[in-house]
Simulated assay, not measured.
Amino acid sequence: MKRQSSYAADGGKLYLVPTPIGNLEDITLRAKRILSEADYIACEDTRTSGILLEKIGVKNRLLSFHKYNSKQKAPELVEMMQQGAVIAEISDAGMPVISDPGYILVQAAIAADIPVVPLPGASAFATALIASGFDAQPFTYYGFLPRKASEQRPYFEQMAQARATSIFYESPHRLTKTLNNLAQVLPADRQITAARELTKIHEEFIRGSISEVTQYFAENQPRGEFVILISPNTETVAINWADLCQQVDELVTGGMSKKDAIKQIAKAHAVSKNELYDAYHQQKEQ
């Protein structure tokens, strides 16, 4: 176990700083200050980030840190922070670590006992979620899915059964094909939302059944980056509590704690953890 205070130690730190996903007014005052004060800014693309930083009036030294060099670069950045450097990590847009390699640097910093300080800010999937019209608790975020239909299908089958709102990202040139693949798994009347160009001048939400939204994009060329949200499965399904309790027992016999076993089985079958807990203890009492 590790305890780490973000503010207690002087010297090297890693700041995780969100940047706007479109509208520059979404940069926070704190984010601008940290970016200005940091010794270095680690970013996915120095050209993209350089343009953004110039627009918001921040001048600082940029370091390239992306998915192709992250494993080699992380130890170098950790060494710099151990020597007292303050590094701010940013994505091309939005929240660091979300669909970018920032977690590799975070893991390395934690292992080296370097304080990791997260800043709140813009996130495309959270922005889309609150305007989707779907229940926001719970939800499952998948990031970018595999490109091949055969590799996408297991994800779509999981989303079809999920009792939570499902969210993933897609690019405009793959959107139509991905929606067609999704339509083969979801019921035709299942509701989805396609959010595009969030916070930008052409921001738009296309809401409807999977068949309606798929047809819309068959007739209208997709433009901009997309967040796709799928409504929860609300069909009434008979739950075999005895079977689920047996699965919990099998995990407990295998060495897992009762609490963790109940949590895992509840999540796997999209049932209430509290209801499974009650059913399990009722069975034991009998």
Rank of each mutant, 00 (worst) to 15 (best):
S6N: 08
D10A: 14
K13G: 03
G22D: 02
N23P: 04
T28C: 11
L29Q: 10
K32V: 15
Y40N: 01
S49R: 02
K55E: 14
I56P: 07
F65K: 01
H66F: 02
K67E: 15
P75H: 09
L77D: 00
L77Q: 03
Q82P: 04
Q83M: 13
G94P: 10
S99Q: 08
P101Y: 09
I104D: 00
A108H: 08
A108Y: 01
G121K: 03
S123F: 00
S123Y: 01
S123D: 02
T127A: 15
A128T: 00
A128R: 00
A131V: 13
A131Q: 13
F134R: 00
P154N: 10
F156E: 07
E157N: 11
K177R: 15
L186I: 09
P187I: 05
A188R: 10
A195M: 04
F205Y: 15
S209L: 07
T214P: 06
Q221R: 13
R223G: 07
L229V: 02
I230T: 10
I230L: 11
I230D: 02
T236R: 15
W241R: 13
Q246R: 11
L251T: 04
S257T: 15
K259N: 13
I262K: 13
K263M: 08
A266R: 10
H269F: 14
H269W: 06
A270S: 14
V271H: 05
N274E: 10
D278R: 11
